[in-house]
Design a protein around this nucleic acid. Structure first.
Lengths: 143, 143
DNA sequence: TATTGTTATACTCTATAACTATA
DNA sequence: TATAGTTATAGAGTATAACAATA
């Protein structure tokens, strides 16, 4: 026996909570739109920021290059985005949502906003504090 | 383009943060003690709560039975815990830490407390608010 | 040589479900 | 028949590294 309490250990609580919230939310879109979490992130980023390269998404969205690349290929195959060669630097690939992709994101956005509202309602006034904390812990020491 | 911002979407931020914190912490124990995250959870729970069955750990620690079972088997093989048959109900298995297990947890506890302190220092006074929020979102609607 | 993206590999997680042994 | 635990399997997620094309 010891005095260590797993329930008050931040990494554990965050992992459990993040897993729960992520599962809960993915139920709102995975079957309905047939995309994975990785694909959802790529679509969401493209929708918010416009066309981007694999590397840009990799840096912005906490997924490594290979995962972004695979997600993009799958999304292309399903007709949700297109790949074009960058005009000046042939190594870069420009990913853009197709109309179908934009349309799907339109619906996804509503789903996401509704879920976010639900979470904020559960949180009440403490919502801001959660955000501030997440922001603070998420700051990168590296770079 | 749309007005949806992935960065202010709670499920995304939580997933990224939990992954980061979990990776960071696991670096503090995985090589040093040669255990996985699942095994760490089992050991921590046994250390805090005393001997328990697979099912009890499963319910308390957000891992399904099979994962607990595998973690326990591995820990037994390495000599960190023992399995005994329950005296009255032969279906139950009583998991207990060995002396080696307790000793390891002793050290692990220090590592964990140090990391927790580091996180709380990064958070400053907002630490409590984070906890309250995690608590609130973590409440189970089911049961 | 260095960089971008793709592909390959291997290992961990997650989710199910089949299976056993006991009740 | 129901429950506790084990084992099997398949699908995601994660981490690396090799590789081809371009710079």
């Amino acid at each position: 026996m010891s005095d260590f309490d797993l329930d008050s250990f931040i990494p554990y609580r965050l992992a459990v909570l993040a897993g729960k919230v992520s599962r809960e939310f993915s139920q709102h879109y995975s079957q309905r739109f047939g995309i994975s979490r990785a694909e959802w992130r790529v679509v969401a980023h493209l929708s918010a920021a416009g066309p981007a390269s694999v590397g840009e998404i990799h840096q912005r969205v906490d997924m490594d290059k290979s995962r972004v690349s695979r997600a993009a290929s799958r999304l292309e195959k399903v007709g949700l985005l297109t790949k074009e060669e960058h005009p000046v630097d042939g190594r870069l690939v420009k990913l853009s949502l197709t109309e179908a992709g934009e349309a799907m994101m339109q619906e996804l956005e509503e789903v996401a906003n509704a879920y976010q509202a639900e979470l904020l309602a559960r949180l009440g006034p403490e919502g801001d504090a959660l955000f501030a904390s997440v922001e603070r812990l998420g700051e990168r020491e590296d770079t």
